[in-house]
Design a protein around this nucleic acid. Structure first.
Lengths: 129, 129
DNA sequence: AGCAGATGTTCGAGAACGCCGAACATGTTG
DNA sequence: CAACATGTTCGGCGTTCTCGAACATCTGCT
């Protein structure tokens, strides 16, 4: 899985984030849906931490396979890669799964309001499926 | 001039604006620079109307040729077309020139805050030239 | 009217990118 | 170890982007 040869997952630093790359990453319905689902998982993790329950997406992380996307697996892989290299999500490997988390803090710091705009749009995409 | 065969310039209605198309339109440095210049022309026209002077970009409109862009003319034509069909700008023909204006009202109505985010980024692009 | 210049668009070719199925790599489980 | 599950990589195919060259339309000048 996850190409454990020697290459590590490259994530741009907060200061490295390029507006055009982030917009390009968010300008696709599938990727927008991914972002919306991650935002949902994020808030779920928050409320669960407050209520001390134990299920759900721990830490707001979701594996790639948990998204039921209407594209092939290889295309999904490409979409996650675009989001990661643009700095929209952060990925880490755990066992056979690759966990994804939204980089909300970094995005809010550099482009305040953008995620608040994109997430509802992503939800609308999902609603149309 | 502007292809006066029979096809009129098609502009999407405010309700027709698609988030993904707008983001894709804004995810290019050249187009971002165009938007920033139009925003500048817009505010110039505003202050001039207040002071009753007469020069500058009337009504916040700028002809395609007034942008000194580092791409070929045909590519510029394509960029303006993308912006228009995404609903970011409105174009109208006057004589031999095609005048462009930012659709700020429509964009602010559908995606509030997006232009406020994009315009400074476009200015940064111009500053790097 | 006629012709030259200015402003944009369209066309054709070559490069770059996106999506897919198939094959591969890695980790987990019985 | 074998079967399975999760993702990535590869090669092909179609779409999209960019450019120069040619074309179309309007304005001015003579």
């Amino acid at each position: 899985m996850a190409s454990r040869t020697s290459t590590e997952l490259l994530h741009p630093d907060v200061g490295e984030l390029r507006f055009t790359d982030v917009l390009a990453a968010l300008s696709d319905p599938v990727r927008l849906a991914i972002v919306a689902r991650l935002a949902e998982a994020e808030s779920e993790a928050e409320s669960e931490a407050a209520s001390e329950s134990g299920a759900g997406a721990a830490g707001g992380e979701l594996a790639c396979a948990t998204f039921a996307l209407p594209v092939s697996k290889s295309t999904q892989s490409g979409h996650f890669k675009v989001l990661r290299e643009a700095g929209v999500i952060r990925q880490r490997d755990e066992g056979t799964r690759r966990l994804n988390r939204l980089r909300r803090d970094d995005l809010d710091a550099r482009f305040p309001g953008l995620l608040d705009l994109a997430v509802p749009q992503g939800r609308a995409v999902i609603a149309g499926w």
